[in-house]
Nucleic acid binder design. Structure first.
Lengths: 194, 194
DNA sequence: TAAACTTGATAACATATGTTATCGCCCTAA
DNA sequence: TTAGGGCGATAACATATGTTATCAAGTTTA
């Protein structure tokens, strides 16, 4: 969220650069929890290498809602703003290298930036983008069958299918692993006709 | 979105009040379209009386995603910020009285406010709230069965069930009207045991 | 007032998806 | 090297939900 926008909003660069030194580099194995559902987010997270998933717990069953990869940053936005417990757990899927910026510094940074009109622009833009993302995911769930959602992944984000274990993908699509297998078989059959 | 926050952010009040005179009052019948999917939002909308639904079109079938009632304001946020076509149509469900603030004035107002630190606070808060809303709707779709979603409506927002025609509710729940009837019968049966 | 719509319930049948169990493959730890 | 565990495919059966058609009651319109 934060450090991606240096190029787009050059006036903010000096503010952001000041905080680079407070980033903590972390090398972590698979299945490391970076933020736990129900706890207040304590860090802004940036992924240098590897990938993570965001999920929430429903009666012991994990529902995966999003994947993040290299060069992406993430926060539990609402958790940061309102000090409210995170709705999601963030967990690595592969051995990963991440940078953390502790909440304390994020808060400081925001305090400094709140007087910069450019920052308001950035906030508006980031917020609109996030809202767009959740709306699109939401609408896709309503509009598309699981098979169509799988096709969307194949067409638009094949790296996810390549890197992420199938049971997480099934969870993301909203079906069981059994049904995802059926979907894959059906698609494979369809293809073999040509 | 905008005029609700006068009390919470008193410093912004004079800015907001200046624009009250540009609000256009409109009395409209049922099924009036206030914003059409695919078009750029031209107004901030405030509902004085009546109610509206937000839906998108999927192969000729309308998928309802949200209802708004008295004293609520709405914008297609992304559409406003990015001048992008709205993902949703906004249509009245009842004869309604609404106020419109043309985009021109909203833009002006935002330009004035962008230098007010309090405005950034407001933006952060509104954005977090909106994101929370869409996340919750999204997660409820993933987590809950249509029957549970109907129970949630009954428990938390019974006014919706009372005022809104059943086919819109079925669409909102993600099922056919036939299935919603089944759900209602099942719940009625369950109750009659006590 | 009568005709035409709209809304909601219901039945019969079709399809999509979940549940449980089994099998095979690959990887890793002892 | 072998035993166990994680992962994915598949089959058989169960359940949830969609589709189509019909009916009844209420509402709008000519």
């Amino acid at each position: 969220m934060l450090f991606h926008f240096k190029d787009q909003f050059p006036q903010l660069k000096p503010f952001l650069d000041k905080y680079l030194e407070f980033l903590k580099r972390l090398e972590v194995p698979t299945k490391t929890v970076l933020l736990e559902e129900g706890k207040v987010s304590q860090n802004y997270i940036y992924i240098e290498k590897g990938c993570v998933r965001a999920f929430f717990n429903n009666n012991g069953e994990a529902k995966t809602v999003q994947f993040f990869f290299e060069n992406e940053g993430l926060t539990s936005f609402e958790s940061f703003i309102n000090n409210s417990p995170s709705l999601l757990t963030i967990e690595t899927i592969e051995p990963s290298v991440v940078y953390l910026l502790p909440k304390k510094y994020v808060t400081e940074l925001v305090k400094e930036l709140v007087n910069e009109p450019e920052f308001t622009q950035l906030i508006l833009q980031v917020s609109a983008g996030r809202q767009m993302h959740y709306m699109n995911e939401f609408f896709s769930f309503i509009r598309d069958t699981p098979e169509q959602r799988y096709q969307n992944l194949l067409n638009n984000r094949p790296h996810i299918i390549q890197r992420v274990p199938q049971h997480y993908i099934a969870s993301y699509l909203g079906v069981t692993t059994v049904h995802l297998s059926r979907i894959k078989r059906k698609i494979a059959k369809g293809k073999s006709h040509f």
